[in-house]
Design a protein around this nucleic acid. Structure first.
Length: 849
RNA sequence: GCGGACGUGAUGGAAUGGUAGACAUAGGGGACUUAAACUCCCCAGGGCAUAGCCCGUGCGGGUUCGAGUCCCGCCGUCCGCACCA
């Protein structure tokens, strides 16, 4: 029997699919449409094994939907703008574009080897001028709709590289590339009005039933809705324009416990006071230098500066409170000012104790020991749903929950003209300006006469200039005079192009929509978008739970309002699946100084190095080049073939969990596929007549049912387990040729979403018609799913003790009689009568003695 | 601190409230072979007085004829967020 040679066979079928064009998406009025999308990759140059798992999952879905009669859209492209290309340009003097497109070529060749159902006719990269030109057109539309605006914002500024850094690019307060201390600098930046959609983005989450709860709760958290009271303190003899200080609180019920007012160092009042107070100016400057990393915040002590100003308590104007500038108050949340209630807030308590400010409880627990904060205890912060006793309440009952107290306090303040209830969100507008070259140019021109003027649409795309150099830090666009100096689109006078480019998250916020009509001369084609949207199944890593997915949800709404997406596509992803990582053991020893030394798997045998040194094995670790535990998918494909790689990454673990790559497992997968091939060949050579035809076909139909169900519910590991079982049954079957061939062909079909090449080969060898890729999915014959005889377990007091074989439709009392007659039950009864007998037809019998 | 997920053999993991451990990995034994590789067959939760019995899904309770699954309370692990007023 010929051996199964993956390398030849896989290339052959990939060519056959290409020729048949069976993965080119075509709208078809006679079929339901299905849009399956995996998050497109950054073109780093190489696929990693995590990509293989991600795309294998999408491919299972796509192939299954194809064979169940759907018009399938399964596109792929490249998230191609971004920093690595500029770094490569600096390091090896290549143009970012050249580097990126070379990487794309390389990765596409790797994609081809995986045998995916991708429709490459729709491919694009976000750095294609055709793509980013449409993005610029949308930017201009958004500008007209008021969805984009410019404002001053505090950003992380790297003074050496001369660019803004994202928070995650700042490590220990230093730029990740330059190592220079990052400054907080105020710059004029472009912002998308995502916060206008806070309420909608939040409430719509409730309807995203096919999204992981984890992602929804992360987004809820991020949007951060809170309800509270906004009111103002009147300032005693304040500077001009500052007769009131506006504060926001979610605990207005603790207003009687106020002991000071705190404002942010960035608060306008703080800045005004700086002018006449150099000590305060120094204090503020120091606060602004402070980093924002978690570690620093943890360590940073509560610091404050007494401004000397005093404000009047709104409930008792004779009561005056001091105003402090405090380092722990954020300017961009609420109003940048708070009232401090030390008794019910740990931060305020720490602050009050440091500055000798009064501590006054407003409520206490109903019962139990209570070490009050006045007497040195901790701040008392019960859940808002807990009922407490109000000591110095000014609204509502004396015994009520925090929530009730808050409601009462808000309505009391509203009635007395003190303040009003407001809803606030943590979500802030999305700053998209980047001082980078390799991104989408923001299509506006700055004119001394006309101000900020959008580029004319007929002049789009505003292309990135090719003749740039990266030998100096900073943005090459800034110093490219020929590119920068252009006439004003409005008045024609000399003006300057905006040199900031867009955050690369903008590029990935609408690519799913562009895939519906990648060649259109407008951002989308309305008919195509209406036909293909929404994405029926989106698949990607959970690391994008907030940024990319939230931005995309905002963008779909903005595009809808600008007329680029239909109303039905405001929420773009009907279902989301977040797959787990592929992990691999790390092999580690330590050098003389105790520092870890890592070893490649190929250097380790039976837990030892060649010289016999025992290595420490760290299981289930994220792959990382420096830890030497990376598995290269191309090596795996060369060794075993794409089917093996696909089969393995889908087996063993549920798709949402991590799966550990093991060499033994990959080898075993490869052996199994070779076995399937042999079993299928043997089926063809089985004798005409045999025994157990019906048993085999029954098992086959049960497998159809189980695998179909598993694939539909993302239970790929369960589907694979079931397919192992069917293979075992077929291998052992003595059935006649016809039955064996039918079972083998069905096995190939059921496997085809995971192992498409092997399945085609078996299909062809066993006389299947056409391509298995386009053959209709097998349907389980209901009649074959029910056995005439079934085995019923007999439990005694809930423990399995025996079993009986009975006809499927036997009457309850007959089953009961049979069960009672079994030796086990007879023995347990010991001549007595059972207390109770439960017969669940088709399931189980339980005898209580 | 807040939010979420999870806890089952040596390991990854199966089990609409109904036979716990499917399927696989690693392991052990055997067949084939001069030998090995390939392949095939068998064993395998723990314990014991081994035709059988007892125990067993993180711990403690509860509901039920019956709980890995449902409820209550703990313990632990992982992930996300957080000076957010």
């Amino acid at each position: 029997m010929e051996r199964y040679d993956a390398s030849q066979i896989e290339a052959k079928w990939q060519e056959a699919w290409r020729e048949a064009g069976c993965f080119v998406a075509k709208p078809d009025p006679d079929k339901p449409k299905y849009y399956v999308l995996e998050m497109f990759p950054y073109p780093s140059g190489n696929l990693h094994i995590g990509h293989v798992r991600n795309y294998a999952m999408g491919d299972v879905v796509a192939r299954y939907k194809l064979s169940t009669g759907h018009a399938v859209l399964h596109p792929m492209g490249w998230d191609a703008f971004g920093l690595p290309a500029e770094n490569a340009a600096m390091e090896r003097q290549v143009h970012p574009g050249a580097w990126t497109y070379a990487n794309i070529d390389n990765m596409k060749a790797q994609f081809d080897k995986l045998g995916l159902t991708l429709d490459w006719s729709r491919e694009f990269a976000t750095c294609d001028p055709e793509y980013y030109g449409q993005q610029q057109a949308m930017f201009i539309d958004f500008l007209e709709k008021g969805l984009v605006y410019r404002k001053n914002a505090v950003v992380n500024w790297d003074p050496v590289d001369m660019t803004v850094l994202a928070n995650e690019q700042v490590e220990d307060g230093k730029g990740w590339r330059s190592g220079a201390p990052v400054e907080r600098r105020e710059l004029t930046q472009w912002f998308f009005r995502i916060s206008d959609y806070s309420e909608e983005l939040l409430s719509a989450l409730d309807r995203l039933d096919n999204w992981p709860e984890k992602v929804r709760s992360m987004q809820r958290n991020w949007i951060g809705k809170s309800r509270g009271l906004q009111f103002s303190f009147s300032v005693v003899d304040g500077p001009a324009g500052y007769d009131r200080v506006e504060v926001y609180t979610t605990r207005p019920d603790t207003l009687m416990g106020a002991s000071f007012v705190g404002i942010s160092p960035d608060h306008p009042l703080a800045k005004t006071l700086e002018a006449g107070n150099s000590d305060l100016a120094a204090f503020n400057a120091e606060c602004r230098k402070m980093g924002t990393s978690e570690e620093e915040l943890e360590k940073a002590e509560k610091r404050g500066f007494d401004t000397g100003l005093r404000v009047r308590h709104p409930l008792d104007t004779a009561w005056e409170l001091p105003v402090y500038v405090a380092n722990f108050i954020l300017m961009d949340y609420g109003t940048g000012a708070i009232f401090g209630c030390p008794a019910h807030d740990p931060r305020d308590l720490e602050f009050a104790r440091k500055f000798g400010l009064p501590v006054q409880s407003t409520f206490e627990p109903l019962s139990g020991e209570h070490h009050s904060p006045e007497e040195g205890g901790e701040a008392y912060v019960p859940a808002k749903t807990e009922t407490v006793r109000y000591i110095s309440g000014f609204a509502g009952k004396s015994e009520q929950t925090g929530d009730e107290g808050i409601d009462s306090a808000i309505s009391f303040c509203e009635q007395n003209g003190i303040g009003h209830g407001v809803t606030k969100f943590r979500l802030r507008d999305w700053g998209i300006s980047r001082q980078r070259y390799w991104g989408c140019p923001i299509p506006v021109v700055h004119c001394d006469a006309c101000g900020v003027v959008p580029e004319k649409k007929e002049n789009l795309p505003v292309r990135l200039p090719e003749d740039v150099s990266f030998d100096r830090p900073g943005n090459p666009l800034d110093r490219h005079d020929a590119w920068r100096n252009v006439p004003c689109p409005s008045c024609g006078q000399p003006a300057r192009r905006e040199t900031d480019t867009m955050d690369t998250f903008v590029d990935s916020s609408w690519y799913y929509a562009r895939f519906t009509s990648p060649g259109a001369s407008t951002p989308t084609n309305p008919d195509e978008a209406a036909y293909w949207m929404n994405v029926d199944q989106y698949i990607g890593g959970v690391e994008h739970a907030i940024l990319h997915l939230l931005y995309s949800r905002f963008f779909a709404r903005a595009m809808n309002e600008a007329g680029h997406l239909p109303d039905t596509a405001r929420e773009p992803f009907d279902a989301l699946f977040t797959q787990g990582m592929v992990t691999h053991e790390i092999y580690m020893t330590r050098d003389d100084t105790g520092r870890p030394v890592y070893h490649f798997p190929s250097d380790v045998t039976d837990g030892k190095l060649a010289d016999g040194t025992e290595v420490e094995i760290i299981p289930s670790a994220k792959m990382s080049k420096s830890k030497k535990n990376v598995v290269d998918p191309m090596e795996i494909i060369t060794r075993f073939g794409a089917d093996t790689a696909r089969w393995f990454v889908l087996s063993d673990s549920p798709p949402e969990r991590d799966v550990e790559w093991t060499d033994a497992g990959a080898e075993a997968a490869s052996k199994h596929l070779a076995r399937v091939w042999r079993v299928a060949q043997a089926a063809k050579d089985a004798p005409e007549a045999g025994q157990g035809d019906e048993d085999l076909l029954r098992e086959m139909h049960r497998a159809i049912r189980d695998v179909t169900l598993a694939v539909e519910s993302f239970g790929f590991n369960a589907a694979i387990a079931r397919l192992y079982a069917l293979t075992n049954t077929l291998a052992k079957s003595m059935a006649g040729r016809a039955a064996q061939v039918e079972a083998a062909r069905t096995l190939a079909q059921l496997m085809s979403p995971m192992t498409p090449h092997l399945s085609e080969e078996i299909w062809a060898a066993l006389g299947g018609e056409g391509l298995i890729a386009t053959a209709p999915w097998p349907v389980a014959d209901e009649a074959m799913l029910v056995d005439s005889q079934i085995t019923l377990p007999i439990q005694i007091n809930g423990k399995r003790r025996d079993e009986i074989k009975v006809p499927r439709d036997m009457a309850k009392d007959e089953i009961e009689a049979l069960a009672l007659a079994t030796p086990a039950v007879q023995k347990a009864l010991d001549g007595g009568t059972p207390k109770k007998v439960i017969v669940v037809p088709g399931r189980i019998v339980n005898v209580v003695v």
